[in-house]
């Protein structure tokens, strides 16, 4: 059986964003992203305008997935923290709960130790927020209508009109 759909609500995003901002300020990082393990971007904070976050999310998830497989091969359940060091910017990737990855991009204004410290704290907070998915009620949310797929197909038809 497949896992259930990942559904994120507005209050959750607010809480997540707040946690991310706290992390960025505390650790003096450049930006922080929360990415689903399948490569979907959940939310982002900080200086992300110059980044192609969609591609970044997909690649990071891929990289994390392959690291996990490496871990399995050497007999570890999971490498929960990953760190890429560059000349200017560095990336700290850590696992949050079961399904998401916290990515922090930072430069030499801060240290890896600070990032680790705050990322750990932020991760714990995010686990709680994400755990609330099923608990929180959402009354007025518009759900996907029955003809959603048909509308989407129409839209696709519009986009690729001249092609097919």
């Amino acid at each position: 059986m497949q896992e259930e759909n990942l559904i994120i609500y507005e209050e959750q995003i607010e809480k997540i964003d707040r946690a991310l901002i706290k992390l960025i300020k505390g650790a003096e990082a450049k930006c922080a992203l929360l990415v689903d393990k399948d490569g979907h971007l959940i939310t982002r904070q900080g200086f992300t305008h110059s980044l192609d976050t969609t591609a970044l999310a997909a690649l990071l998830a891929g990289s994390f997935a392959s690291t996990r497989e490496i871990a399995r091969l050497v007999g570890e359940p999971e490498f929960s923290v990953l760190f890429h060091q560059g000349k200017r910017d560095h990336i700290h990737i850590s696992l949050v709960g079961e399904r998401s990855i916290l990515v922090v991009i930072f430069d030499d204004r801060t240290t890896i130790g600070m990032v680790r410290l705050y990322a750990k704290e932020c991760g714990d907070e995010l686990v709680m927020v994400l755990g609330q998915t099923t608990r929180e009620k959402k009354k007025e949310e518009k759900t996907i209508d029955s003809d959603f797929a048909a509308s989407a197909e129409e839209r696709l038809n519009d986009i690729f009109k001249e092609e097919s």
Binding site: Q2, E3, E4, N5, D36, E141
Partner: peptide, 15 residues
């Protein structure tokens, strides 16, 4: 699974 983000009103599918 399909990711539905109500905050950004976004639906994301992996094909």
């Amino acid at each position: 699974m399909v990711s539905i983000n109500y905050a950004f009103r976004e639906i994301c599918c992996k094909i």
